[in-house]
Amino acid sequence: MPTELIAMGRLVIGTLRDLAPIVLVVAFFEIVVLQQQVDNLSTIAIGLMFVMLGLAIFIRGLEMALFPLGETLAAAFAKKGSLIWLMLFSFGLGFGTTVAEPALIAVADEAAEVMAKGGAIDNDEVTRDGYSTALRYTVAVSVGVSLMIGVTRILLGWPIQYLIIAGYLGVVVLTAFAPANIIGIAYDSGGVTTSTITVPLVTALGVGLASVIKGRNPMIDGFGLIAFASLLPILFVLMFGIVVGA
């Protein structure tokens, strides 16, 4: 137990470095640029302590649970040797973690509002809800498919750049055909899909797979799953815009 406390204490001190920039930036703009008094200093101090402690505990949990779990799963799937289950798992993980993501729900609702105001869809609650839900499921499916493609790439050892560059070309071409008001939403949807718990897990899964499969390099083949999960939603949402807008 004491070693555990010492490790945690070290992590808490380490977070000072992570949070110092935020404190400095806010203080500079508040005091020097806007020349305002900072209110509620005690609340802020308590909040910052929470942030430090939370970050330290999270990092500890990361090393104890999320990283080993991702690696254990990768090893277990490789041992089982069943491609179908691995694909199902990848899709399920991507879809399941995205469909309820709060940031995605917010963006989808906002998108429905934009569309209703622009006259692209009827401005009543049922239509807007339907649109927002359809968009959300589109993104969730796209993230599920991303992980499937990403895992396939690791298994087969394809170089990532060709796939990603092909994806970019797709984005550029689809942008030309997509309705103007969906473009910003589509581009943003790539960034909101990957949550704080999914990222470490998926990264560990990819690196784990690349380490247990012969001939794969964890650095070259293991990373890249997140990259697909941020690119494919753009493509899918642009297509969604073309299909729904037509």
Binding site: F50, L53, G54, G61, L62, E63, M64, L66, T196, I197
Partner: peptide, 11 residues
Amino acid sequence: GSFYVVLGLTL
């Protein structure tokens, strides 16, 4: 560790 992850994120 999983409990830590949830607790850490909460704080």
